[in-house]
Amino acid sequence: MIIIASDKALPPNNTSASTDSWYESSARQRVENLLDANSFNEFIGPELRETSPHLPLFDLPEQFDDGMIVGYGRLDGIPVLVAAQEGRFMGGAFGEIHGAKLTGLLRAARDIAWLPVLILFDTGGVRLQEANAGELAIAEIMRALIEARFAGIPVVGLVGGRAGCYGGGGLIAGCCSALAVSEQGRISVSGPEVIETNRGLEEFDSKDRALVWRTMGGKHRRLIGGAEVFADDTVASFRDAARFLIKHAPSMSLEMLEAEQFRLTQRIEQFGTCADAADIWRSLGATKPQSIPALPHPDFVALANDLQEPHYVAR
């Protein structure tokens, strides 16, 4: 009888899981399937029950990990630090514990100075029941993230979850060295309902799904240079994107921010008078902009590469 007890007998990864939808996966499934099998080691896991000290005041249920998973693992053998938000708990919103875990992780990345960081965004922004703590957590995360990048650490963001990447989450994403986004991965500061509530239905109809995807969705973000890689909605595609972007992530310097200043002011000059995303796509050279929302992943990637080279040096 042969007893197989070696790690080598295990498949390198759960191959069936890697074709799973990123959007449909929980934060834990994303982390497990993104990283090499059995390589993830969580910091302050749910067994420690570090729950929000503020939600009980509102009689709201707590979650043992407060909707944020942080830890250490390997991606294709490369050691990485990982953070993942659970969009199905309080919309993935930043509260005191949730945010502090990511702050601690990024401060460690800055001081270790050689471990790349992956952030799996899935968030509606600040958790209003602890709004001041959440807002400050976002400010602290941004500072630690920028300091880590200044120390030469790649911080790569992956956006494709149910809650999208809104509010302060959008600002943190904008600080990352590079981003991969799927079609479902909306990135924006003000959400559709917020714009509609404040400015009226004529400004933005939040019920118009096509308008929401066109204005904030992954395809538009890739086309205007708001994200480097357009990922398919699978764990495997995000895994490939993460591996690629860790290698290509630019560091932070004065020259880098001057290049970004140029990139962004040029964007206002080029597209500042466009009324709709389709107008922007047309001025980028798309001959049939109305067909872009329905384009399958490989066709869109080809078109995007044709219309706009990804910027790897201006973020």
């Binding site: 600080c175 500061v189 714009i195 708001g226 962004l264």
Partner: peptide, 16 residues
């Protein structure tokens, strides 16, 4: 809070 600002990628401008 406007369509134009989000269309142009306000998150990148504020982050910048």
């Amino acid at each position: 809070m406007s369509k134009r600002d989000e269309l142009l990628g306000l998150n990148e401008f504020l982050a910048h």
